[in-house]
Design a protein around this nucleic acid. Structure first.
Length: 352
DNA sequence: TAGGCCATCTGGTCCT
DNA sequence: AGGACCAGATGGCCTA
């Protein structure tokens, strides 16, 4: 994943991206030099290198270390420092200022790349932004989970898929992901569509529709994320392409897959059984996936059934979970670009 | 208030 | 020489 970021932050991509934003130049020029941000300007004074100090003092120290500094630090090797004339000091300042601007720009590029990455993750919220580290972890998991789908035909709607996504994530992030994948602004529509499901296969609750258990009523706060429609499409098309070749027993034939007209099935289901002991899959061991302590599993939200009733049937309580209200700002997405492209590409690779 | 996250500055290293 | 990259340091902001 470090490579991913490195790749994304490579000069070309990022500078293009950043320059396309068009804000950087003004931003940088306004922040350069003494006009920099508070912390920065303070620090550049407080932390200033010795080059920034009084040139005379600087040289004197060097000399002292050489003359009577036998018991002190060893004499500095290398070329003797030139005197810091006013002009050199100015040049140094200018150079440092330029370097700072470049560094800022570089970090902005990195952050832009992270934002892009956030947006192609299976859940995205403008306000509830994933932290950098969580973004990277989720990306890692997402890649891992998708490759599982490709390699083993595992359903992206399966319990295991969500587990993979949540591995190693902090509890809040796990909550967010779980919430995103299970719930969404279109949840009521999902329910309606599911009611019409022609083949009668359980749409939620995992491939085998195993019983879903909500262990305790004392639950964490409701999920606060959402899955955008294009991601549902993403999942849908992805799944379709996979099961064209590997139809799952629970699926209607892929031929019956209707054209996309909105989210037909929730992309994933979450059983709420994360508290159960999780045996590492052979693939997990094989990939030497970092082991993870169970604490975050045991604290995942279990989406207690609300008291307001819900759909009957084995998956009813899951649907009830959709009665949680999501914060408005999180339901409001604007663009949600590349993931489906990625998925369709992967899908086409798979179907080759 | 502690801890997490972040932006920024900075100096060092490597590369072109 | 100058730019990119990196890691350490620092302080601000936010939240539990």
């Amino acid at each position: 994943m470090t490579n991913l970021i490195t790749m994304m932050s490579k000069r070309g991509d990022m500078s293009e991206l950043v320059s396309s934003l068009g804000w950087l130049e003004e931003d940088l020029s306004s922040q350069d030099g003494e006009e920099g941000p508070d912390m920065g300007s303070n620090r550049s004074i407080g932390q200033g290198s010795e080059d920034m100090e009084d040139p005379e003092e600087d040289d004197d120290e060097d000399d002292k270390a050489g003359i009577d500094g036998e018991n002190k630090a060893p004499k500095r090797r290398g070329p003797k420092k030139k005197k810091m004339t006013r002009a050199r000091q100015e040049r140094f300042k200018a150079r440092r200022s330029k370097a700072n601007a470049r560094e800022r720009s570089r970090m902005h590029g990195l952050n832009d790349a992270l934002d892009v990455l956030r947006k192609v993750m299976p859940c995205y919220s403008k306000t509830q932004k994933l932290s950098k580290i969580e973004t990277l972890r989720l990306a890692r998991n997402y890649i891992w989970a998708l490759s599982e789908v490709l390699e083993n035909g595992q359903s992206p709607e399966s319990h295991g898929f969500v587990e993979m996504l949540c591995k190693g994530l902090s509890q809040p992030t796990s909550n967010l992901v779980a919430g995103c994948l299970q719930l969404g602004p279109s949840a009521p529509m999902l329910i309606n569509k599911l009611d019409e499901k022609p083949c009668g296969a359980p749409a939620m609750g995992g491939q085998s529709g195993h019983p879903l258990v909500y262990p305790s009523p004392g639950l964490p706060s409701p999920p606060y994320g959402s899955l955008e429609a294009s991601h549902l499409l993403h999942m849908k098309s992805f799944k379709a392409s996979v099961y064209e070749q590997h139809p799952s027993p629970n699926e209607c034939g892929s031929n019956s897959t209707p054209p996309y007209d909105g989210p037909l099935t929730p992309p994933l289901s979450i059983s709420g059984n994360y508290a159960l002991k999780q045996e590492p899959s052979p693939h997990e061991a094989e990939r030497s996936y970092p082991s993870h302590p169970p604490h975050y599993l045991s604290s995942l939200p279990h989406y207690a059934p609300s008291a307001v009733g819900g759909l009957p049937g084995p998956q009813g309580h899951l649907f009830q979970a959709s009665r949680y209200e999501l914060p408005l700002d999180i339901q409001a997405f604007d663009s949600f670009p590349p993931p489906h492209m990625v998925a369709s590409q992967m899908g086409s690779i798979y179907s080759e």
